[in-house]
Structure formats: structure tokens, C-alpha cells
């Protein structure tokens, strides 16, 4: 779990850091004000925000409002850490769907218990869509394919390596280990992944990637599997096929465009259609 503590009081941050790191084993980052906290949240993935209310420059309320209006950070769990006890304030916070409220002064055991009881799960990091779609396989940027089927791995390798290097893994665990050792921009997930399932694999890839965006592409057989892939946190899907021409047309979406037409298509995907309409 990655946690951001935002409090202008250094001693509170120190106490909270010790509790979270030592008692719960969480990774902690500190921030002294709301402006810096929002900057940190926009740069890194956090699973929880501990937020003070009374802060200079940008109050905890304002930070909370910004987060709830943000498309990518709307769902981040926020626990308020404050000495504020007025009912109207508590009501206002409830409206902002805070996950919990810790009253100051902080008591180590209470904090650990309360946070552990929240049963928080690491958030799946999808990242800004634009960033993900810019990640491609290229000569200088290898990708990883994980698939338990030897025939498919060999086929994939033969076809895909025309566009760039591909590292193969026989199981999800092996792919995650490879990724940890040497991260790539694009990971293709096939079938027969071994003991580790897709959801766990995607989560572990995101965790290992940290701030670095990674494009996870699920290789699917049908529309139902496509929906399931999105639910499991994959960014994209491609059809599973062993017909070379179909594979190539599917796979090209994940290959860095080269050549003038490819660059134009990346800039203006509908340009050709616009040209057709311009005369017809």
C-alpha cells in the first residue's frame, strides 16, 4: 500500500509515518501542504490519502473537493486526520465520502486498528489514457508476451518480432519477474498463465511499474473475454488469432508508427475519411 500523509504539522506526519510503516508495513510519502499533496497525487499512484483539514494555502476541504472532481483521483480513499469535532464539519466530510476520520491527538494503536479495518486494496492504476495509448512496441522498446501455449508463443514471436523485440514468458509469475528485472512499455497477456491469474498479474505489474505507465494488452477470444479483460484492469485487448494477416492488423495498433502516413494517422486518425468526404 502506498500512502500519502498530508499535514502541515511535522510531528503528526512523523508519528503517522512510524505507525503506518512499522505497524502496517505500508510505504509512506509525506507532504506538508495541500498544493504539494495534489502535485504528488498527480505524479504518483497512492492507495490512500491521510489528510489534515487545517492547512495554509489550500485546506484539506479544498484538496478533497479537487480530488472528488478529478476523473483519475475521484475514487482515492481519504482518511481525515484532524482535531475538528463540530458535527456540521463531520457532516460536510461525509458528503465528500471520506473513508474514515482520525481524531488528533493520534494514538498509535487506534490508528493502526482503524486503518487496518478499512480493508483497503491497492488501487489499479490505469493512468491517463493518453499516456497509455502512446506506449508502443518498437525496435528500441521491447515488450513481454506471457502465454502458456508454446505454439501460440512461437507464432506470436515470429510475427511480432518483425516490428520489435519480444520477450516471452510461460507463466504470469515468470512475466512479472521479468518485468521487475527489466520493465517494458507493453505487456501482452495470453492464456494458460499458471497459478497467478490475470487480475493479480495486472496488479503486480502496476505495483512493479510504480510511476512508470505500462500498457497491458489482453489477448482475447471473444467479446465476453474483452469485457472481462477491461474489468480485470487491462488497458487494451487484441484478438487471439494464428492467421498472420489478421494478427498483423491487430498487432499494428501496439507498434510505434513509423513513416509519414503512420505519423499522420497517429495525429489525425480520420484524415483519410475526411479526404474522402471532401470530394464525395
Amino acid at each position: 500500500m502506498n500512502v500519502l500523509i498530508c499535514d502541515d504539522d511535522a510531528s503528526t506526519r512523523f508519528v503517522l509515518r512510524r505507525i503506518l510503516a512499522q505497524n502496517l508495513g505500508w510505504n509512506v510519502v509525506e507532504s506538508g501542504d495541500g498544493v504539494d499533496a495534489l502535485a504528488q497525487l498527480s505524479r504518483r499512484r497512492f492507495d490512500l490519502l491521510l489528510l489534515d483539514l487545517e492547512m495554509p494555502a489550500l485546506s484539506g476541504f479544498e484538496v478533497l473537493e479537487v480530488l472528488r472532481e478529478s476523473e483519475s483521483l475521484r475514487e482515492i480513499p481519504v482518511v481525515i486526520v484532524s482535531q475538528e469535532r463540530r458535527p456540521e464539519v463531520i457532516m460536510r466530510l461525509r458528503e465528500q465520502h471520506v473513508a474514515g476520520y482520525l481524531l488528533k491527538p493520534i494514538h498509535a494503536e487506534q490508528v493502526a486498528d482503524r486503518l487496518a479495518n478499512l480493508r483497503l486494496k491497492p488501487r489499479v492504476h490505469t493512468g491517463p489514457r493518453g499516456d497509455i495509448s502512446n506506449l508502443h512496441l518498437s525496435r528500441g522498446a521491447p515488450s513481454i508476451l506471457v502465454d502458456g501455449n508454446l505454439d501460440y508463443r512461437q507464432f506470436f514471436l515470429a510475427e511480432a518480432e518483425r516490428f520489435g523485440p519480444v520477450r516471452v514468458a510461460e507463466s504470469a509469475a515468470s512475466a512479472v519477474a521479468q518485468f521487475r528485472k527489466s520493465p517494458v512499455d507493453v505487456v501482452f497477456i495470453g492464456t494458460q498463465l499458471g497459478v497467478m491469474n490475470v487480475e493479480t498479474m495486472v496488479r503486480k505489474l502496476r505495483e512493479a511499474a510504480g510511476d512508470r505507465p505500462v500498457r497491458v494488452v489482453c489477448i482475447v477470444n471473444d467479446a465476453k473475454a474483452k469485457e472481462e479483460a477491461a474489468r480485470l484492469g487491462c488497458d487494451d485487448t487484441m484478438a487471439r488469432t494464428m492467421v498472420p494477416s489478421v494478427f498483423t492488423s491487430e498487432f499494428r495498433r501496439f507498434v510505434k508508427p513509423s513513416g509519414p502516413v503512420a505519423v499522420l494517422q497517429q495525429m489525425l486518425p480520420e484524415f483519410k475519411n475526411a479526404a474522402m468526404r471532401s470530394i464525395d
Binding site: M267, L268, E270, F271, A274, A275, R277, S278, I279
Partner: peptide, 15 residues
């Protein structure tokens, strides 16, 4: 005329 339409398409897409 063709180019006017293509430029309009580009402009609509922030280009």
C-alpha cells in the same frame, strides 16, 4: 475546397 475541408478537420482535432 478540398484543402479547406481538410484544414477544418485538422482544426477540429486540435491540429
Amino acid at each position: 475546397r478540398v484543402v479547406r475541408r481538410l484544414r477544418a478537420h485538422a482544426s477540429e482535432n486540435g491540429c
